[in-house]
């Protein structure tokens, strides 16, 4: 079964009398456990595609299927529920809730899911170890570096074992060493947890990690090749 399927997916923005085609009839299928990179210049529609897959945004037309279920027709609460249980998000920046500590941020999703405290703690501590942050559990986001914040964000995205992680330019604000560590982490998680990864980027080094590289220009998929 495919993890993601998009059929003739369009997302238009209207600015005055101009129509911006952020996604223009995109057809795409991503299988489970794939490690996909979306590349392309800014404005090519990478983020819009990720948002549509994650149910953060409503397409103008076309279909989005996630884990065999059509999601573009769902309501806000159902979408929230789908994200809660099936998708992990990592954004470019401002990934963490500032008033919660690193561990509380990681436990946040589990708490909303209703996981009991003991299991929460066990899982958050083990994932913190996995991303190499075990001694920083009680720090607030403001006390962490950009790379550390991103690692916490990644830990939070995978802690409840979602089927898929969507990462939007996760390395954009990081130096190259930290970016490499983060990508290594993604690859490892992809292999050990069987999680599907869809990562948007315009960073060449990130693309080199991809096993499938999708190139986008002006809202269309122009290349799609195994790597």
């Amino acid at each position: 079964m495919s993890s993601v399927r998009c059929v003739a997916l369009c997302r238009f923005f209207f600015q005055g009398d101009q129509t911006i085609k952020a996604l223009d009839h995109v057809d795409l299928e991503i299988d489970e456990r794939e490690f996909v990179c979306l590349s392309g210049p800014s404005g090519s529609g990478k983020t819009t595609l990720l948002n549509a897959i994650g149910g953060l945004d409503k397409p103008t037309s076309g279909e989005v299927w996630v884990a065999g279920k059509r999601i573009d027709t769902l309501g806000k609460s159902e979408l929230a529920n789908m994200r809660l249980h099936q998708i992990g998000f990592v954004f470019q920046a401002y990934n963490l809730i500032p008033v919660l500590t690193a561990r509380e941020n990681i436990e946040f999703v589990m708490q909303v899911q209703g996981v009991d405290p003991e299991q929460r703690r066990r899982r958050s501590m083990s994932i913190l170890g996995e991303v190499g942050m075990d001694d920083m559990e009680d720090r607030r986001p403001a006390q962490l570096s950009g790379g550390q914040q991103q690692r916490v964000a990644v830990a939070r995205a995978i802690v409840s074992k979602p089927a898929m992680v969507l990462a939007d330019e996760p390395t954009a604000n990081l130096d190259s060493v930290t970016a490499e560590h983060l990508m290594d982490l993604f690859v490892r998680l992809n292999e050990t947890h069987d999680t599907t990864f869809v990562i948007s980027t315009h960073d060449q080094r990130v693309m080199s990690y991809a096993r499938r590289l999708i190139g986008m220009v002006d809202g269309r998929i122009v290349t799609d090749e195994a790597h």
Partner: peptide
């Protein structure tokens, strides 16, 4: 922003 983030993480509007 934070509210958007929480929504992305799966928090329902209610």
């Amino acid at each position: 922003r934070e509210i958007g983030l929480m929504q992305a993480l799966g928090m329902r509007p209610s």
